[in-house]
């Protein structure tokens, strides 16, 4: 058998500014799952010095959570890279944005003290932080992924589990679909049961920090789309032993009273 020399480049958005709580877990998972399939994996840390040319090499883009002040620094730099990010988005490059980073994708984000930050405008959605007086959305989050995504690559597990801790409330517009339907927790705004958003292959979720370890199906979704986009063909992923991951996933479901 000819040895595969496929490889993927993972773009990690502002690791220093967007790593509030274990966010790098997503990078560990993606990198190792790519390596365990015998492919090459490279992680590029995106910051203010990253050029448009470097961005164009990225096969997958990952964003974590940040505190409000860091978010301001990030968005002001990201707006300068808007064209390159939009090119990735339009071409079907997969992305995962957890915690507060989806706010960067929408039209705007109103912070707790009333400052309106512009977003990249890639996702038809808006976020408003109702101020320090309103309770934050904190706790375990369980949701069912939308059908579009679930059957895109021949069916996958229905549930996602995570932990949310956010002040902002997001309302989706017509141009974007929810990533999942909330079973337990708040999701986008605590009212309409939508959780996160999905557009092209960018996934936004209010789950924060290490979302992928307990959701290996989403990790593999990102990897297969990245391979498809880069090599223009479906490349089957070798199954891995995910028993610990599913045990951890199911422990959260049980904790939240979901019968499996």
């Amino acid at each position: 058998m000819k040895k595969l020399s496929l490889s993927l480049t993972i773009g990690w958005l502002y690791p220093e500014l967007m790593s509030t709580y274990g966010d790098r877990g997503n990078i560990f998972v993606l990198k190792q799952r790519v390596l365990r399939r015998g492919f090459g994996a490279e992680v590029i840390e995106i910051d203010h010095s990253t050029t448009g040319k470097e961005l164009s090499r990225i096969d997958m883009v990952i964003g974590g959570g940040s505190q409000d002040r860091e978010q301001e620094i990030v968005i002001s730099d990201l707006l300068k890279k808007k064209d390159a990010i939009k090119a990735l988005f339009d071409s079907g490059t997969p992305g995962l944005f957890v915690c507060g980073s989806p706010q960067l994708l929408g039209h705007s984000y109103m912070t707790g003290d009333g400052t309106k930050l512009s977003g990249l405008g890639l996702f038809d959605m808006e976020t408003i932080h109702p101020g320090a007086g309103k309770p934050r959305c904190i706790g375990n989050l369980v949701a069912e992924i939308c059908d579009d995504m679930r059957y895109a690559r021949g069916g996958m597990r229905k549930t996602i589990v995570g932990f949310e801790n956010h002040g902002g409330r997001t309302i989706l517009g017509r141009g974007v679909k929810p990533f999942a339907h909330v079973l337990v927790g708040n999701g986008n705004n605590g009212n309409d049961k939508t959780e996160g958003a999905l557009c092209n292959n960018f996934i936004a979720t209010y789950s924060h920090g290490p979302f992928l370890p307990k959701n290996p199906h989403i990790a593999d979704y990102l990897i297969s789309h990245a391979l498809y986009k880069k090599y223009k063909k479906n490349i089957a992923l070798k199954a891995l032993d995910d028993s610990l991951a599913w045990n951890a996933h199911e422990a959260v479901l049980r904790k939240c009273g979901i019968v499996i």
């Binding site: 709580y21 274990g22 790098r24 560990f28 932990f163 290490p210 370890p213």
Partner: peptide, 9 residues
């Protein structure tokens, strides 16, 4: 703490 995300830090 009810959130165990920190183990990845």
């Amino acid at each position: 703490g009810t959130d165990v995300s920190w183990i990845y830090d």
